[in-house]
Simulated assay, not measured.
Amino acid sequence: MVLINRKPILEQVDPPRSPRETLPTMYDLPSESPEEPGLPDEFHDLQPQLLSRTLRLSAYTRDHCFTASDLNLYYDVNHPLWYKRPDWFLVVDVPRLYDGKELRRSYVIWQEGKSPYITIELLSPGTEAEDLGRFYTETATTNAESAMSANAPVSNGLEQIGTKPPSKLEVYERYLRIPHYLVYNRHTQQLRYFKLDGGQYQEQSLNSENPIAWLADLDIGLGIWEGVFEDVPGYWLRWCDGTGQWLLTDTEQAEQQAAQERSAKEQERSAKEQAQAQVLQAARNLLANGMDVAQVTQLLNLSAEQIETL
């Protein structure tokens, strides 16, 4: 756990100061909690990498958006120690580096001034009920157990102030008002998409055979790609364009460019060989029709060595 310089919460003055001045910063708040449930497995490590490495936004450069996975997200100025840890999230219209100069240790809403625009949770048995909230449905027995779990205090490794923190879905919907919330179950290859509409999430229908969630305001789609990433075959979440073409990682882009360059060189070599063969065939025809070697050499700009090969 990284904890730097526990900054006290300052009392307000008249005129009041902004939360950015009075509340803890990312330097003061814990960056992780080993006791938190749902610690990532290897999939939870690889999948966010693929999401970040294939993200291409037409309206934002890489220097003006921020992506993160399993990073503490502090969201409530009234309870500055409360946080959630999304499996992956995107914030647009913020500098890639904190204040344009440093890697983030956490994401603190009152310091940044921008909420995430997309949040993605990778479902696991221990976190599914909280990730889905009211959209979680199972058998009656499981529902009862989930309700008991949901009503239990949610620990974030810190002493709580007054009341228990809200659920993850509630934070994304009511506190942060994140426009796009998606969840993915890799075991069932099920992608679910919730869009903020009128202050509440409404689940969007997806094509069951080709589930792609289209985010029109960002001009990008998210679907399930069957392939190999970092030498691991599986069904992965991956960004795509409006035609359904999967967007490439940086490595794939480099490999594609190298393949295109090799192909261009091969085509150039083949074209030269074909042109040379045509010239030599023309020389054969002229020699067969009685033209002397000197004339053929001069006419076709051939060397004596090339004529000798005929």
Rank of each mutant, 00 (worst) to 15 (best):
T137M: 06
L51Y: 00
Q298K: 08
E226S: 15
E255S: 11
Q257H: 08
H187I: 08
P16D: 04
E11H: 05
I9C: 08
N72E: 12
L57C: 07
L132D: 00
N78Y: 13
S106K: 07
S155Q: 14
E36T: 13
G234I: 00
D70V: 12
P166E: 11
L90W: 02
E35G: 11
P179H: 07
P40R: 10
V77H: 14
F43K: 12
N207L: 09
D45P: 00
Y172I: 14
A271T: 04
D70H: 13
S18N: 11
P8S: 06
R177S: 09
R96A: 02
R192A: 03
T188E: 12
N289V: 03
S69F: 11
A264D: 13
L46A: 01
G162S: 15
T163N: 07
T243G: 12
E252L: 05
P8V: 05
L169A: 01
N5M: 10
Y74K: 14
R85E: 08
Q160K: 15
M1I: 14
N185H: 04
A271N: 05
D93A: 05
P15R: 06
K265N: 14
D217H: 15
V77W: 11
P116N: 09
D28P: 07
N72G: 12
T61I: 03
Q200Y: 10
A275I: 09
W236K: 01
R238K: 10
L287V: 06
P165F: 10
Q204G: 00
S263V: 11
D45F: 02
A152M: 15
W88S: 01
A147F: 14
Y117R: 06
M26G: 00
G223Y: 01
N289A: 08
W236I: 02
